[in-house]
Every structure is written in C-alpha cells, then in structure tokens.
Design a protein around this nucleic acid. Sequence first.
DNA 1: CTCACTGCAAAGGTTTTGCAGTGGG
DNA 2: CCCACTGCAAAACCTTTGCAGTGAG
Lengths: 138, 138
Amino acid sequence: MNFEKISDIIKNKGLKITPQRLAVLKAVIDLGNHPTADNIIEIIKKSQPNIAIGTVYKILETYVENGIVKKVKTDNDIMRYDAILDKHHHLYCLESDRIEDYYDDELNDILEKYFKKKNINDFTIKDIKLQIIGNFIN
Amino acid sequence: MNFEKISDIIKNKGLKITPQRLAVLKAVIDLGNHPTADNIIEIIKKSQPNIAIGTVYKILETYVENGIVKKVKTDNDIMRYDAILDKHHHLYCLESDRIEDYYDDELNDILEKYFKKKNINDFTIKDIKLQIIGNFIN
DNA sequence: CTCACTGCAAAGGTTTTGCAGTGGG
DNA sequence: CCCACTGCAAAACCTTTGCAGTGAG
C-alpha cells in the first residue's frame, strides 16, 4: 500500500505523522499475515536502521488504542498484529504457527442473527472473532 | 471438586499422581474463571508453600498436552488456563480482564452445520472457539 | 528400584519504562 | 515554539530450562 493512503489512515485518527509511524503501518499491512513485532522491526530496519524496538511497540500500542490494528494472540504466547481492513476470522494451524484469514459474509450474517436473537444477559457485544483450529492439508 | 475425582482425571490419562499435580488441577477447576499461572500459584502456596513456579508451568504444560486443560488466548498479555469440562466459548470484557464462559448447544449446532456445508479448502477443522468481545453491563 | 517428577535458580525472550533529545504541526 | 514522539538502554515480566535430589508406581 502506498504512503499516501497510509498517511490518511493515521491522519483520520488525529495522530501525528512520522516516518516511523508510516513505516510501522506499512509493514503491518504489507506483511499481511499477522506479523509479530519482530517481523515488523526486521522489515523496517531495511529502510530505517536506527528505529528503536521500544518505539515500534509504542506505535503498535497507539494503533491498537486507535483501532487501526488489532492484536492477535497465539497459543505460544507471542503477540501478533493485524491491520483492520475488513471483518474476518482466523484459521489456526495446530502443526505450525501459521494463521490465515477467513472471510465469509454468510458466516457473519448467521452469527449476527443468532446473537441478536439470543441477547446475552448483561453483556453488550462489540465484536465476535472465530478461532478455527485445525490442520492445513498439504 | 474433591481430590478423588481430580485424581481420577489424572489417572485416566496415565499420568503419575503427585500432590503438586492434584493441587494444580484442583486450583484450575476451583478457581474456574480462567486463572493465570500466577493465580494458580497463589492458591497452591497456601497449602504447599514450597511449590516451585517452574513446576506449576511444567504441570500445566503436561495437562495441555494431555487435553486436561486448555490455554485461553487473550488479546492482552498473559496466558490463562481453563479446565476442559465441556465445549464452550468465551465472553471477553473490554473494560476489565474478566472472561466468562458462554455455553449454548444451539450455537454449536449452527456452527457445525455451517462448516460442514462450507468445507474450507485444504483445512481440516478440529475445534472452533468464539471470542465474544464487548462489555458487561453493571 | 527406577524413571519421572520436583525444587531451585539462572537464563531466555518479549514487552515496558524513563529520560533526554528531536521534529512534526 | 511546544509538546508529542523517538532512540536508547535498562528493567520488568512471564515463561522455560538444566540439573541434582526426591518419591510415586
């Protein structure tokens, strides 16, 4: 994704634009497949060798607070990040640490209809995420 | 839960029974609400002040491998554990770190039917977990 | 008896923090 | 210009590991 679009995303949230912030968001979007903080840093170091690890974590935290990216947690306890571009769920592989996106509007409709009918006591639903766990067939 | 039942759960998996193992599983079950390793250790220290933190982690890992407890992924920092007593999903509170269980067979049926029909390419589903995210109304 | 389990302590890796200096608006 | 952001390094944090000693089967 180009820097102009990325710049817009950041600006829309009223955040200051810095080269580091542009690079972090571009990395999360371009890497796509739920990168770890480490993956992101590795990519950014190519264009900005002096970026600090702490800075990347601070930027990611800012993005999470502003709803620009989401955290995705794995069983191995390493945090991964995911740019929010569309509503989707995740396929988790039991045999590797692969995580793939799963999109389906029909599924979202089914869930929405179900929860609208159920109306859980004392709980307001903001989001629903499915963790679909299994194995990829190679 | 009493130690006899807990002992049976461990024995059924062909694992050795030790006071530490009994205490860890009892703590996970009794605490109920998806305790962290730290919560578990805190409880156990009351009856077994000398138990080692490393031992608790090793025991929990053994239980996970043997399907006695599950790890619960939170989008925040810390790993939580959950005794497997029944198929269920989780309500995550955005404002606190509360996690509640959500049971509903109708939901499980709907999901099963949906995924049976969809048949995701190159992926065999072993389990599906819903993260229902929102706020508890106090 | 034997091997798996425990306790201990150190190491491992990830994420957070404090502070001085910098630069975006 | 000013305040928010960055770089740096240390530290906090949770979890894992190695090893010697112990105890369950």
